[in-house]
Structure formats: structure tokens, C-alpha cells
Simulated assay, not measured.
Amino acid sequence: MNEQLFSAHLTLSKLAPTDWELIRSIYSNPALMQHIGAAMSEEEIRRNFEKELAPWSLDSTHWLTWIIREAATSSDVGLMSLCTRRREPLTAEAGFIIVEAHKGKGYATEALQLVFDFAASTYGFKVFTAVCSEEHAASRRVLEKAGMKLDKIVPENTEIAGKLVNDCFYSLEK
């Protein structure tokens, strides 16, 4: 599998052991996790990190994760992940987290489109899905700019910080 993907402004590198500090800083940060779930303990983060370092295939139950970096500076931008959700049609769920310093630069959209193209051509994914909370307007814009369409909004579907939130379900067919 390609270890790196390249776009005009970004380099995406498959998750590596050297990415531990970035992953720990993302998943333990309440501000970055506010629309995803509770900030995680170091033990939870380590457990997930170790799973995602394992080799990945269409049959894997863990996420295939890339670290997003600015091509020009090598600065850490965030992460992008895919996970197989269905075999017929072959469907992947996408997820991403962008660090504060790089929000609003269009990097999430650029990385998402890059990963969709790679996953469709390399693995044969036909459909991509994503879920985000209705109140997370920035993520909704990213998904829509990447070509995804809103399929449905499910009221009070996920609990985040002790509050039930509405989830938006998006999809894109390739």
C-alpha cells in the first residue's frame, strides 16, 4: 500500500509509531473532541493507536489513518481515516480531525478528496459515508465541498459531553 499521498498543498502519510505525540495531543484535547466525543485517556488513545498501526485491508475492523501535513512546511495539519463499512456496494466511512492552527484553510476538503480518489482507485470503494453532529457547521461544509450529499439527520443520535446531539449522515458515490 502507498505510504504517502500527495496533493497541491498536502502530504498524507500512513500512521507510524513516530506519530504518537500528535495522536495523543489530538485525542486528549477537549476543544478538538467537542463535536466527536469525550477527550480520551492516554490508555484509550494508546489502545486505538496500536490498533491503527496494524496492517490494513478491506476486511480490517480498524481505521486506515493518515497524518496530514503541509507540503511546504511539513507542519502537522491533522488526521484523515477510512474504515470499511459494507461490502456490497463496497463502502467506506471517512473521518478527519484538523488541528486549530490549520482550520479554515481548505485542507480537510483537499485531503478528503485525495483519500476518496485513492481509495476508489486502489481498493475499489464505490460509496463513501461520513457522520458529523448537526451543530458542527465547519465539518458539514467540508463534507459538502468534497462532493458529499446530506442523506438524513437523525435526532438525538449520539451523546457528546452528556448531551444528545443530532447526527448528519452524508454519502458520495464514485
Rank of each mutant, 00 (worst) to 15 (best):
M1V: 07
N2L: 14
N2G: 10
L10D: 11
L12C: 07
A16Y: 13
T18P: 11
Y27D: 12
Y27F: 14
P30T: 10
A31Y: 11
A31F: 14
L32P: 09
M33Q: 08
Q34G: 06
Q34A: 08
G37W: 15
A38W: 14
A39L: 14
M40Y: 15
E42F: 13
E42C: 14
E43S: 15
E44C: 14
R46P: 07
R47L: 14
F49A: 06
P55M: 11
W56G: 03
S57R: 13
S60W: 05
W63Y: 07
T65Y: 02
W66E: 02
W66D: 02
E70S: 02
A71P: 05
A72R: 09
S74E: 12
D76R: 03
L79R: 04
M80W: 03
S81V: 01
S81Q: 04
L82T: 07
R85V: 03
R86Y: 01
R87N: 06
R87G: 04
L90P: 00
A92R: 07
E100T: 07
K103H: 05
A108Q: 01
T109G: 01
E110K: 00
Q113E: 01
F116D: 00
D117H: 03
A119L: 13
S121C: 09
G124Q: 06
V131H: 00
V131M: 01
E134L: 02
H136Y: 10
A138W: 03
R141H: 13
V142I: 05
G147K: 06
K149G: 13
L150N: 12
D151E: 14
V154L: 12
N157E: 09
T158E: 04
I160K: 07
A161G: 11
L164W: 08
N166F: 09
N166H: 12
S171F: 10
